[in-house]
Computed example of a mutant assay.
Amino acid sequence: MRTYRFLALAAVSTAIVASPAYAEKGDVLVRVRAIVVAPNERSGPVTPAFPGSKVGVSDSVMPEIDFTYMATKHIGAELILATTEHKAQGRGTLSGVPTLAKTWVLPPTLTLQYHFLPDAKIRPYVGAGINYTIYYS
């Protein structure tokens, strides 16, 4: 099973573009951002036919939409929805094959958040969550 790192980009631009919104208990926040899906890949050789070969997987940047439900002023649950396309590429002795396969990835992520300063001008928070990645097409 592959491990994926998810980095939410454009959080700073979202904060700059969006007007200040103070979330209260029961509010639902909707945001549009960008997400990077960067596979943490490891590949052994494709043996016995192609010794010295490896397979790599491309990174992908796409828009994403997320919904945060505020259970309290400090605690929220966020659902991140996005889908990204990736290419399996030949490396090593397979480097002449630029695309071995293509797939789409749907990594819905549910995160529990703690907002430290919900009424401040800058509202930092931390979160941890779970993800189940679905491959299709």
Results as ranks from 00 to 15, higher is better:
M1T: 15
M1R: 10
T3S: 12
R5F: 04
R5Q: 10
R5E: 05
F6C: 07
L7C: 02
L7K: 10
A8I: 11
A8E: 12
A10D: 15
V12G: 06
V12I: 07
S13K: 04
T14V: 03
A15I: 03
A15Q: 07
V17M: 06
V17F: 01
V17R: 03
A18H: 05
S19V: 04
A23Q: 09
E24W: 08
G26I: 05
G26Q: 01
G26F: 01
V28A: 05
L29Q: 14
V30L: 07
V32I: 01
V32W: 06
R33V: 05
A34P: 00
I35K: 04
P39K: 08
P39A: 15
P39C: 12
N40W: 07
E41V: 15
R42F: 10
S43H: 04
P45W: 12
V46Y: 12
P48D: 10
P51Q: 14
P51K: 14
G52A: 14
S53E: 14
K54Q: 11
K54T: 11
V55K: 00
G56T: 08
V57T: 14
S58Q: 08
D59G: 03
S60R: 01
M62C: 01
M62N: 06
P63T: 02
E64C: 04
I65M: 09
D66V: 00
T68N: 04
Y69A: 07
M70D: 01
M70A: 06
A71F: 15
T72I: 07
K73D: 15
K73M: 06
G76M: 10
E78A: 09
L79G: 07
A82L: 05
A82R: 03
A82Y: 08
A82Q: 02
T83K: 05
E85A: 14
E85V: 12
H86C: 12
A88Y: 11
G90P: 07
T93V: 15
T93P: 14
T93L: 13
S95T: 13
G96K: 09
P98K: 00
K102D: 13
T103Y: 00
V105K: 02
V105I: 10
L106I: 03
P107F: 06
T109I: 07
L110C: 08
T111V: 15
L112V: 14
L112I: 13
Q113K: 13
Q113H: 06
Y114C: 01
Y114V: 10
H115M: 09
F116E: 01
L117F: 11
K121W: 07
K121V: 07
I122H: 09
I122K: 06
I122T: 11
I122Y: 13
P124D: 09
V126F: 05
A128I: 15
A128E: 02
A128C: 02
I130Y: 13
N131K: 14
T133A: 15
Y135G: 10
Y135L: 15
Y135C: 07
Y136R: 00
Y136T: 02
